[in-house]
Amino acid sequence: MSVNTALEAPWQSGIDGLWRARELPRHQAADAGISTGFPALDDALVDHGWPPGGLVELLSEDYGIGELRLLSPALATLSSTDDRCIAWVNPPHLPYAPALQAVGIDPARVLLVNANDHAEALWALEQTCKSGACCAVLGWLPEPKQRFTEIRRLQFAAKQGRTWANLFRPIGASGEASAAELRLSLGYLSEDRLNVDIVKRRGGWPLRGIELPLSVGPTQRRQRLSEALGRWRRKRFSAPPG
């Protein structure tokens, strides 16, 4: 037995109640989060999921790289367990009801709010968060720059209304200070993979490079099926008769 292993033993065997700095603090079951549907991301978050009451900032260069597929498993869970509505404040495009239905989000729960300008969008976001009538809020603001106090107000409102609030912002904002509970920077890897960097999280250091597999649509399923069929055919017909 070497000295090294003897020294390592107490760490690795795991002493009950010993908390190490690289671990997340143990969460209480009472305020467990909404599972993101991605185990890799769940493990990195203090609530083991999206915060049930708090603001999440999603920073990305472009809309459409998979940010909705990142949220959709949790939204689908909420739409079957929570009877409050899901508010979309100032979305850049129209959320398409049949596709929402297909991923499990009940379109009847969706509340669309279109604001005329930045101030109105902020007001609508704060109202939807604060009211407690929405289980989740998805917000897009017309102006990229936000003041610190505005974000803090939203975070406070989301806490008050126990709303999982999401704010989509350009990636340039990642350097700014923010009062949001969780800040994620999203990066495109491929059509079915998304890179998530945690810029800020409660109870932990920033974390880079979480790769998430995104749900594949029926088209890719068909593609994979035809590839498998091709392989099987080749094997079947090129095999020597025996």
Partner: peptide
Amino acid sequence: SATEANRPLWLLD
């Protein structure tokens, strides 16, 4: 058939 078809989450209108 509606859920089987691949439909985008954002629609441009």
